[in-house]
Design a protein around this nucleic acid. Structure first.
Lengths: 165, 165
DNA sequence: CGTAACCTTCACGTAAACGTTAACCTTCTG
DNA sequence: CAGAAGGTTAACGTTTACGTGAAGGTTACG
């Protein structure tokens, strides 16, 4: 076979070392290695001397993990569930997509879609609960505002600053 | 003197012991004591023999803490920030409100409002970031759907089930 | 008033999520 | 090609958020 470039695919193989990835994502190198230990991701490649090398999809994945951790407050275990094998098997799928028949492709895509759907559901559930909490907090504020109004002397005090959302 | 009930105040002094509170809130007794250790709350009273006794406001506070922990995913330290002294000093304030002048009352209420405002801001910030994530996930789904449509054969396959939000 | 059930304060144990250090190897640069 | 900068694995340390007794006081009940 004619010396195929190793996974020469879509990108110009712009790979980053772990420290660069850390700077880029705001994670520490330790955290990145730890996530790998937990099976949350695998570096796209290793150098000759076993240096971890990351591509852009790895970056995205790490940013996503960080978001799920920081913004959504999920545990790494939960994040593992959310990511499932998603991207882990995405590479396999890409190969499938490159060579096999449409029905296989379709199955793969639908599977991916189902996963995304589940992610969305989980996130929305969280958002809903958060929304409920925010509502409750707003109610408390309204309550306080009413008390303030009363205190200010009946029906027409000086309307501080109206705040409607 | 005619045997005054101890601390006969506004409520019928319906105080709960820690295990009852645990059952009521879904927390463990250990967690409740731990939150106290961290300064997140103080039981409304102690019995003769030093049993912790909680009133309804304690219950609310604990439920709120649990929500912040579970739904919003805040650390207990962050929750401490959010709660600040809020209810901790609310009791003092209630006394103030009962006896002092309106200007003092007003100041107290405005302070409380400011705290609630900050809580709302924090929660909304979180909600916004979560929303962004959900949007991103929806975009991915849309993308997958487009690919599926293409795969199904050009402009008019069989529209599986439409899913719009 | 005995005793079962519950409470108290230590105090040590644990899982999760990394931080830090050690000992050693790889890469890049002058 | 030396050697500073950065990477690797391995292993132990740390913080957070409790779990799990131990040793002993307190309450409620028959």
């Amino acid at each position: 076979m004619p010396a195929a470039p190793p996974t020469a695919d879509t990108s110009p193989a712009h790979l980053l070392k772990i420290q660069e990835v850390a700077a880029e994502t705001g994670l520490t190198t330790r955290a990145i290695r730890y996530y790998e230990e937990l099976g949350l991701l695998e570096p796209a490649a290793r150098s000759e001397g076993a240096y971890r090398l990351y591509d852009t999809s790895d970056l995205e994945r790490l940013r996503y993990i960080k978001e799920l951790r920081d913004e959504a407050g999920f545990s790494l275990a939960a994040i593992g569930q959310l990511l499932e094998d998603e991207t882990a098997r995405e590479r396999n799928r890409e190969r499938f997509r490159a060579s096999h028949d449409p029905r296989e492709r379709r199955a793969i895509l639908e599977d991916a879609r189902a996963r995304v759907d589940r992610q969305i559901e989980t996130l929305e559930a969280k958002a809903t609960r958060l929304g409920t909490m925010i509502e409750a907090a707003r109610d408390r504020r309204t309550h306080l505002d009413r008390h303030l109004a009363e205190l200010d002397g009946g029906p027409d005090p000086h309307p501080d600053r109206k705040r409607a959302r």
